[in-house]
Amino acid sequence: DEMTNIAYRMKELATQGASDANGDAEWAAQSAEYAALTAELDSIMKNTSFGGTLLLEGTDNKFGAGAVEFQVGSSEAETLEVDISAALGTAGTPTAGVGFGIDQIEAEGTTAGTFENVGEAQDHLALVDNLISDIGTARSALGASMNRLEHTMTNVTNMKENTQAASSTLMDADFAAETSNMTKQQLLMNSGISVLSTANSTTQMIGSLLR
């Protein structure tokens, strides 16, 4: 998102520079900001990392090298691949489009990375248009994968809740049913004791009569 904002500001500066109404002072001022923004884009590309792993550019970067695979479930088949390597560009010379073509932007112009006349500003316009397009392509791929991940998370959460409910049904006691069973058993026991007590009394009475 921040790279998109930077690219649009660069487009605005290049558009302003692509006019004969500018003089050397105006082109110098526009180019100074333009070059600073390009440097920031380059810094974002080279330094964005997670867990010490470079993500966008550099040696053994993840997304620039090809599809990145995420495990999203408990089985081997439940994976998700995110591939934005085509939009990021392939390794090589600046004209090969390394890092959204940022290297090519840095090399363009009589003084690298700046514009000093209308022609150079127009050249940068075309490069920035490609930059905006490539960033948009990468963002759309990432956004689609993020949306899919959200649905995957929801589905896994539902599976977890259903599994816990099934486990509870199998393992947890039904307090009302168990209380009812206990009461029934207590009543049966008390009734048995009462019957035995009566039987013992009857035996004692018969023994007294016989004596």
Rank of each mutant, 00 (worst) to 15 (best):
N155F: 08
N155D: 11
T163N: 00
S180K: 14
M171N: 12
F175D: 05
M146Y: 04
S180V: 07
R148A: 09
T169H: 08
V156W: 00
T154Q: 11
A177M: 08
D172A: 10
E161C: 05
H151R: 13
F175R: 03
M153N: 12
N155V: 07
V156M: 10
N181F: 12
T179L: 13
N158T: 12
T154S: 09
A173T: 12
N147Q: 03
A165V: 10
L170H: 04
N158G: 08
S145G: 06
S167Y: 15
S145L: 04
T163D: 01
M153I: 10
S145H: 03
L149G: 10
L149T: 12
S167N: 13
M146G: 02
T179I: 13
N158S: 00
V156P: 00
A173V: 04
A173F: 14
D172I: 01
E178D: 03
N155M: 09
L149A: 13
N147R: 07
T157Q: 15
M159L: 10
D174T: 08
E178Y: 01
E161G: 08
T157N: 14
Q164N: 05
D172T: 11
N158A: 14
M171W: 06
L170I: 03
S145D: 05
N181T: 12
E178K: 03
N162K: 13
A165F: 01
S180H: 11
A165Y: 01
M159W: 01
M171A: 02
M159H: 01
N181K: 11
M146S: 06
N155I: 07
E150A: 13
N162V: 13
S145K: 14
T179G: 06
A176R: 10
N147T: 01
S168W: 07
S145P: 02
L170Q: 15
V156K: 10
A176H: 05
M171H: 07
S145R: 11
E178Q: 06
N147V: 01
D174G: 05
S168G: 09
N162D: 13
N181A: 09
Q164M: 14
Q164F: 14
R148G: 02
T154Y: 00
Q164G: 01
F175E: 04
A173N: 15
N158L: 06
A173S: 05
T169N: 15
L149D: 00
M153G: 04
M171Q: 09
A177S: 10
M153T: 11
T169M: 15
T179H: 08
N162I: 03
S168M: 12
R148M: 08
A165C: 01
S180Y: 04
A177Q: 15
H151C: 00
E161P: 01
F175H: 07
T157F: 09
T157Y: 01
N158D: 07
A177N: 11
